[in-house]
Design a binder for these strands. Structure first.
Lengths: 168, 168
DNA sequence: TCGAAAGTTCAATAATATTTGAAAACAAGG
DNA sequence: CCTTGTTTTCAAATATTATTGAACTTTCGA
């Protein structure tokens, strides 16, 4: 397989992958492109490589910056802005976890706290069922929250170390 | 807060949550409804509670069954089919992990294997950058794959135990 | 075996999300 | 402080995805 084709496959499947995780295709594709590019790219480079409009490119690069996955790079002697992705995949994963935790898990846990205060006779089976479910989700959510914190502060091989500790 | 309102909030935010994870709103809502219901429900119950059409209900319940999150239940003395969600949240999480691993992580790893066979001069910085990225993602992906296997076979408090082992 | 009730399918439609492109804002160099 | 190249914005257009509902199939009881 030629490099060009391989790059295209990577970009396209990274994009498809993204859509299964609530990330829009283009954002994932730009990320993929920057990940495999040896040097920082300009907006125009991205537009041309992916055949997308200027506005789309701009918005999605900005979003990637918000997520902490891409950085603006200033190359001296150039007027245009350049962009580069964080290349350390472990850092990338940690950053994504950090953001999704903040954006999704934590608000969910807050909501569950509120929902636990439902009024009503706790002998009513509907109330009971509701409360049990909410409380169980909360328990697991809190556990996940703590574990992810540990992960965020951990070394890359945390996963594997964990595995080994459990096995032996 | 009244039970009715609490239930609605739970269902609606579970649905919104789902959309951020590549799961369609209705499927997540039906799942939520079945999670908090004390008894199995029929299609008609679901239609009425969520105000959705018969076709939609049918398709999404089937999808939940495919994911292994919901089961058909036959209540004797009733002609209609009833549906119930797995209530053990830990089992639910494991099941989701199992499915997503199979549907997404494993195909991705297969693709990466193929992409590593790219032709070209390995001193070319574009080739080098591509190969480095692919290989790093593969490495982490394989690690994740193994760790998730461990998790799938683990007890509910695996998370917390892991945490404690690391801390001390 | 038939008829009614329940379940399923899928083309048409609606809702949602993404993309475009042109206009506006901004920034750097002269 | 003006010109030009660059970046940003956002309403409208497009593409994608989800939903409906009526026709069709299956199942069950009599």
């Amino acid at each position: 397989m030629k490099l060009t084709e391989a790059r295209q496959q990577f970009i396209s499947s990274w994009g498809a992958f993204g859509t299964h995780w609530g990330i829009n295709r283009t954002m994932a594709q730009i990320h993929a492109l920057l990940l495999i590019s040896s040097d920082p790219l300009t907006q125009d480079d991205v537009m041309e490589e992916l055949n997308i409009s200027r506005g789309n490119t701009n918005m999605n690069i900005r979003e990637l910056i918000n997520w902490g996955l891409v950085e603006r790079v200033l190359l001296q002697g150039h007027r245009k802005e350049y962009f580069a992705a964080e290349k350390d995949i472990w850092k990338v994963v940690k950053q994504i976890v950090r953001e999704r935790k903040k954006r999704e898990l934590e608000p969910m846990l807050q909501l569950l706290d509120k929902l636990e205060e439902v009024e009503g006779d706790k002998r009513d089976k509907n109330v009971k069922s509701f409360l049990t479910t909410v409380s169980n989700i909360k328990k697991l959510g809190n556990q996940a929250d703590k574990t992810l914190d540990t992960m965020i502060n951990a070394e890359e091989n945390w996963f594997l170390n964990t595995l080994l500790k459990i096995i032996k």
